[in-house]
Computed example of a mutant assay.
Amino acid sequence: MQYRVQGIVIRSMDYGEGNKIITLFTREMGKAAVIVRGAKKVKSRFSSVAQLFTCGDYLFFKSGQLGTLNHAEIVESHHHIREDLHMAAYASYMAELTDRMLGDQEASAFLYEQLAAALHGLETGKDMQIISHIYEMKIWMLAGYQPELEECVSCRNAEGDMSFSAALGGILCSRCRAKDQQALPLSAGLLKLLRLFAQMDIRRLGQIDVKPETKESLKRLMRGYFDTHVGLALKSRHFLDQMDKYGV
């Protein structure tokens, strides 16, 4: 059967001497694995459409698990992302997160739009860490891992000082704080940011100025929650950690 889709390349691997297998995250059918014959050859007409983060219109024939590309046209090449180490690192993280957390043919037009907007945001100079955190929240929500951010997960109190408990899956009020000694205290600003991430459409994201110490707290909180509830080991996240560690 022949399919015509709009998709973003979230994974690309060599296959044989001159071919590649790409994983497209598509608006219409979720993830789709497609063989791109001759993509590794310099003069191939398909070499550019098989590169990571490329957004394009793809036409492929599929009779089993893999499709075979017949035609493609680039919508957004995102070559600036591939040329910049930091942008490429964050884009790789969001791409790998999408690939690992979504099942085959698990379609979500909204998440597709969020990833497309996230890549555009990286390329236009918006805060890379903030974009990745918002995208994390979107994919958690789709996969059923959304943290409780509106009221205490224990007593449902919505007033007063709050802490964040990765173990219990959301915020704890001061009266219930003792139920998790590892819970992280939340300033009013940090809690507001987390709630914003849950509600924000990346397509409408403007410039957000977040203090470095707040961003560090956000990263620790988001990663603690991810490790507790999802637990996937992602190569791209390890690379981001190494960049932070060595000040790259």
Rank of each mutant, 00 (worst) to 15 (best):
A33M: 04
F164A: 08
K179R: 15
Y112H: 13
S92I: 00
K20D: 02
F53Q: 02
R237G: 03
P212S: 11
T228V: 06
I35Y: 05
K245D: 14
S12W: 03
T214H: 07
S154E: 14
S92D: 03
F110A: 11
K179I: 00
L168S: 04
K219C: 09
Y225C: 07
V75P: 02
V36M: 01
L69V: 10
L66R: 06
C155Q: 12
H86L: 15
E216A: 14
I22E: 02
I208G: 02
A109W: 02
Y135D: 12
D241K: 12
G125H: 03
K211N: 10
G169N: 08
G67E: 09
E83G: 09
R220I: 12
R37I: 04
L66V: 10
Y112F: 15
R177G: 02
L234K: 11
M29T: 09
R100Y: 04
I8E: 03
L232P: 01
V36P: 05
Q105W: 02
R175K: 11
G247S: 12
A117S: 15
L97P: 03
G64E: 13
M101Y: 04
D227Y: 04
V248L: 15
K211M: 07
L85F: 13
R37N: 13
R27A: 11
M87H: 08
M141R: 12
A72S: 13
E113N: 12
